[in-house]
């Protein structure tokens, strides 16, 4: 799922209202971790998917 202006606005609205309370912040994090890491077919890892030379071979297949 990619961010769109509408989604971003909705997220910011949540963060500036409910998100100010720790419980809602933790809820959002749990949902994000579940959707983007635990249940994702390809887990999202911020510090990953950098270029490595072996990928040149993969793209040439």
């Amino acid at each position: 799922m990619y961010m769109t202006p509408l989604r971003m606005a909705a997220l910011r609205l949540y963060l500036t209202t409910f998100g100010r309370f720790a419980w809602f912040g933790r809820l959002l994090k749990r949902i994000a971790v579940r959707r983007m890491i635990r249940k994702a077919s390809e887990p999202h890892v911020p510090s990953a998917r950098f270029f490595t030379p072996d990928q040149l071979k993969e793209s040439g297949k």
């Binding site: 963060l15 500036t16 998100g19 100010r20 720790a22 912040g25 933790r26 959002l28």
Partner: peptide, 12 residues
């Protein structure tokens, strides 16, 4: 509360 944010405001 002593925490810090990385990805969104109020993330803790």
């Amino acid at each position: 509360d002593g925490s810090f944010n990385e990805w969104w405001p109020g993330e803790r």
